[in-house]
Structure formats: structure tokens, C-alpha cells
């Protein structure tokens, strides 16, 4: 029997999610199932309604906050393996957000990997991506186009801190907009400032989970009242606050958005913000190539992002590649 049919036997795409028949579990399912393994805590991967959740302990901490305390959770650590009906699931860091894991799935000598969402560069707070040599790789390709190549973190960091400083000099507060789980904490981690940092409620709650998991972030203020802050400050919030009274009390301010999409001029200009930072929690074009080089998969299944294009490119490079439809989303900015 060929490897390809073995992989079909090991992992299958169904209406409910990525299914592993011998273990009878789903990975990041998008419809309610009995047993789910979750790669990370973003809402398109960790959904409500499953009977039993297995995930990294940081991810279960996030799920307890988002989905509720009283569900059936089982927690593991990085590097831990769980055996289900002869299938071994190993949790390997993905470098995407707090607790994010790739799943290494071994069964009868065949190794499959589900990437979840992942990122190459170690940002210091999201775990550090490790390559996993495998036969079958199920990968995201949110930014699977040669247009997308991230700058190194230290360059974005410099750009960010310079911008904050310039705003303060011209009497403006700096508003940094980014997704409340992952991006917001990365921005805080990058900030080097003596100014007070105000955070939105959504960010505040996620910060608490990071702290609970032993990741220290700079001190922040969660404003409980509608008073205007005194003196210059930095504000971190999800993009949904644009145009709300919550944000207005920080006027006068300059606003910025941090996302991989900010590499494109169209989205940068259409977002009504003053500045775009190219900062993504996903693999860029080079990153995806590094993954292919280091893990040498025989077969790649592209799940979300520029799947058609990336799969076609891989086929031309001699790698068997197909696409499968899922309900995972590309990098969220809201």
C-alpha cells in the first residue's frame, strides 16, 4: 500500500473538520464533535460545543476563559505525547500565539503534521517553532504568496518605538490596534517606553492569561472609568474600537494597525489609520519555504489562505500538493 493511501486513512477532511479515523478524534473541528484536539486558542480553531477538549495547557487556559470553565478539558505540555487507539499525538510548538502547537500524528510508521497556524520567528512569548520531518503536512498558507516577506522583529520594534516617541513629541497619544489574543501581547512585548500603557478590556483579559501562564508583559492600565488620561500614553486595543467613545477619550492620538495585510498598500490605505505595521503571526513566503526544506513532506495539503496558488507552486517544485476546504480564517484583524 502506498504512503498516500495511508495518509488518507490517517487524516481525512470531513464536514466537521480534520478527522483521524483510527483515533476517532477531530483536530480543530468547526462543527460540534465528541472528541477534539485543539492546536491553539483563536476562535476559528477552538470552537464551542465539543464533548471533550485536548490541548496544550496554555490553550486550555485560554479556552476556559473563552468557552467556559465547566467543560471537559485535558491539558498537556510542549513535547508531550498522547496515545489514542495506537495513534500517537505529539504537541510541538508552532510559534503562533501563547500555547500554539503543531500536531505530530504517528500511526503505523506514517507521520502526519497539522500545522494549525504557525510562524517562523521566535517572538519571545509564543513558543518557538520547531520543524517536524513528516510524510504528510497539512499547512496553513494565509500569506503563501511571494508578496509577503516579513521584516525581522527587531526592525519592526525599532519602527514601532520611533513612531510612539514621535507621537509623544508632537503631543499625541499612540493607539496600537491588533487582535486581542496574540497580536496585542506581541505589541506590548515590543514596546520600550516609559509612557503608561492603557489596554482595552478584551486585551486586559488575555493579558491576565499570559501572566497566569508565566509570560511577563509590561505593566498596563485597564481604565475602569471614562476619565481622560493625564499626559501622553500608549493605547492597545482591538481594531473594533475605531470610532467608538472608548477610543475617543484618548484624543488627540495617532492610530496604527499591526497585521501582515499591512504590507499591501490597498488595505493599508483603506483602513482609516495613520500608520500600518507589517507584523504577522503567520508564516510568510520564506517561512513556508523553510518549513518545506526542513520537514521534507511527500505530500502537502493546503487548508486556508492562498491555497490554490501555493499548492500549484509546490507541485511545480515536485511536491505533491492539494487543497482542502476548511472553515479556518486567514489572519484576523477584527
Amino acid at each position: 500500500m502506498s504512503r498516500v493511501s495511508k495518509s488518507n486513512e490517517l487524516l481525512r477532511f470531513s464536514e466537521r473538520g480534520i478527522y483521524c479515523p483510527p483515533a476517532d478524534v477531530y483536530i480543530d473541528p468547526w462543527r460540534p464533535v465528541d472528541r477534539a484536539i485543539i492546536t491553539h486558542g483563536h476562535s476559528d480553531h477552538a470552537r464551542a460545543g465539543h464533548g471533550h477538549y485536548l490541548a496544550h495547557r496554555f490553550t486550555t487556559a485560554i479556552m476556559k476563559h473563552r468557552l467556559g470553565e465547566g467543560l471537559s478539558y485535558q491539558s498537556v505540555d510542549y513535547g508531550d505525547s498522547v496515545n489514542i487507539n495506537g495513534v500517537t499525538f505529539t504537541f510541538i510548538p508552532a510559534g503562533h500565539i501563547l500555547g500554539s502547537c503543531q500536531l505530530r500524528i504517528e500511526y503505523k510508521g506514517h507521520i502526519g503534521v497539522v500545522s494549525g497556524d504557525y510562524k517562523l520567528e521566535d517572538d519571545g512569548i509564543s513558543g518557538c517553532y520547531e520543524p517536524i520531518p513528516c510524510h504528510t503536512l497539512i499547512t496553513e498558507c494565509t500569506f503563501g504568496l511571494p508578496l509577503f516577506n516579513w521584516k525581522e522583529d527587531h526592525l519592526v520594534k525599532e519602527e514601532l518605538n520611533t513612531w510612539v516617541k514621535e507621537n509623544a513629541l508632537s503631543g499625541k497619544n499612540s493607539v496600537l490596534l491588533g487582535y486581542s489574543l496574540g497580536k496585542a501581547q506581541r505589541l506590548q512585548h515590543m514596546l520600550e517606553t516609559d509612557l503608561p500603557i492603557y489596554v482595552h478590556g478584551a486585551v486586559h483579559h488575555m493579558n491576565a492569561i499570559y501572566e497566569h501562564c508565566g509570560i511577563s508583559l509590561p505593566p498596563t492600565i485597564y481604565p475602569q472609568d471614562t476619565k481622560k488620561p493625564e499626559g501622553p500614553c500608549v493605547v492597545i486595543a482591538p481594531p473594533s474600537v475605531l470610532g467608538t467613545p472608548w477610543l475617543r477619550k484618548f484624543a488627540p492620538f495617532a492610530s496604527s494597525m499591526a497585521s501582515g495585510w499591512m504590507s499591501l498598500r490597498g488595505p493599508r490605505r483603506r483602513r482609516s489609520v495613520d500608520k500600518g505595521f507589517v507584523l504577522s503571526d503567520h508564516m510568510d513566503w520564506k517561512g513556508l519555504h523553510t518549513v518545506m526544506d526542513e520537514t521534507r513532506p511527500e505530500r502537502v495539503i493546503c487548508t486556508h489562505g492562498y491555497t490554490d496558488i501555493f499548492a500549484q507552486y509546490l507541485r511545480e517544485q515536485g511536491i505533491e500538493a492539494i487543497t482542502e476546504k476548511t472553515e479556518f480564517e486567514t489572519e484576523q484583524t477584527e
Partner: peptide, 18 residues
């Protein structure tokens, strides 16, 4: 792949620049 990238960026000069 250049053409597909161009189609997504929507602007030729921007595509070449990236």
C-alpha cells in the same frame, strides 16, 4: 506566480516593489 501575485496586490508597481 508573478501574474497571480499582481492580480492580488492589484497594482503592478507595488507587486514589483514587494
Amino acid at each position: 506566480l508573478f501574474e497571480d501575485s499582481y492580480h492580488i496586490a492589484g497594482d503592478l508597481a507595488e507587486t514589483i516593489t514587494l
